[in-house]
Simulated scan of single mutants.
Amino acid sequence: METFNEYIAFLGPMGALLFVGFIGVVMALMVLPRLLHREKDPLDRLRKSQEDQASETDAEVKLSRHGQRNKKLERFAHLLEPQDAEQLSETRKMLIRAGYRDRDAVRTLQAAQLILGIGLLIVGVFYVVVLGSEMSLTKVIMAVMIPGGVGYYGPKYWVQKRVAARQDAIMSGFPDALDLLLVCVEAGQSLDQSIIRVSEEIEASYPDLAEELSMVAHEMKAGKDKPSVLKEFADRCDVADISSFVTVLIQSAAFGTSIAEALRVYAAEMRDKRVMRAEEKANVLPTKLTVGTMMFCVPPLLIILIGPSLFGISQSLGGGGGGF
């Protein structure tokens, strides 16, 4: 490191910035040939012709559940989509669980990561240029790399937080939806009709769960296999209660038992679990308040109680010393 610092010092006050810029240029030159000489897919021409035919009429666009492709993102598809099929599938699944079902959701996420990463990296470089003469090499690297890392991983972190918030909303509304579903089934409606009615009733209170139930109902009406539709519903939500509910429905249909009876038992269990969750949060609350109490209540209380005594002692010692 001493030799390396000597070389940096030999380059002058802007040596650290020149070194970081040199590394960036080398990395860009290493990636540029691969981007320019990318092998063409033999199916690109066929895919392009099919997309042109699909965009000729508005009717075909309306039939698409996810809408039309973004032509601006289509040109950079090789850069904005993971080349690994497993990684692409995991990213798309994460976005679907977050509520983003658009066909270009993966490309939009990757574009946001690249734009924010490069943009904040440029901001870091500009900050180093302004204050580079007063910063050490370690601070220069941190000032450049940390904003770039935050910009690149920030959108993905935000999507993950959105997934967690959506799962909490679905979990909160599922017991009420299950009670309504039980009422509809016992009233004589089929499971498909009951799901449609429940999705309409809870849309104002729990829009995320209503959207998922509406999708399940439409897939069943389209003739898709019911067990596969329910399994996809559980996979999209990724909530333990819904996975158990789907298992109950599938087993009830497989063994020929009454769906209403299975729903009645499971709805009672979900109500008990909701009460248990509320009690758990209530029991954890005093522990969480302890830290705040110790930080914000105990010090002022000590000042109020001990402060006058300490002031009186100091005054008496000061007065006694002066009289002596």
Rank of each mutant, 00 (worst) to 15 (best):
Q167W: 11
S205N: 11
A187I: 11
D176C: 11
G173N: 09
A187Q: 10
D208W: 05
P227D: 00
I202P: 03
K161A: 11
E232L: 03
A164W: 11
W158A: 09
S172A: 13
D208F: 03
S190D: 13
L182D: 02
F233G: 06
E211T: 10
K226V: 05
Q189V: 11
S190C: 05
E200L: 02
D176L: 12
V216P: 07
V229S: 04
I196L: 13
S199L: 00
K156V: 14
A169T: 07
R166W: 06
L230V: 01
S190N: 08
P227H: 04
P207D: 04
S228H: 07
R197N: 12
L191W: 11
E200M: 08
W158C: 01
D176R: 15
E212K: 06
V185R: 08
F174Y: 15
E219P: 03
V163G: 13
S172F: 14
R162M: 05
M215H: 09
M215S: 11
A217W: 04
E200D: 07
S199F: 06
E212R: 07
A187W: 05
D208Q: 04
K156D: 10
R166G: 00
V183W: 01
G188T: 13
S205G: 06
Q160N: 15
I170T: 10
Y206N: 08
E232N: 02
V185D: 05
L191Q: 12
K224N: 07
L191D: 08
S199K: 09
M220T: 02
Y157V: 15
R166H: 07
G173T: 04
L213N: 05
E211H: 12
E211M: 10
A165Y: 15
K161T: 10
L181E: 05
D168M: 12
D235H: 04
K226T: 08
A222F: 06
E203Q: 09
E212I: 05
V198T: 10
V163A: 10
L230Y: 05
K226E: 09
P227G: 04
V185T: 11
R166L: 00
S172I: 11
A169W: 14
A169K: 15
Y206E: 02
A210M: 03
V229Q: 07
V229T: 01
M215V: 05
R162C: 00
L181Y: 01
S194I: 03
S199H: 08
Q189H: 12
V216M: 12
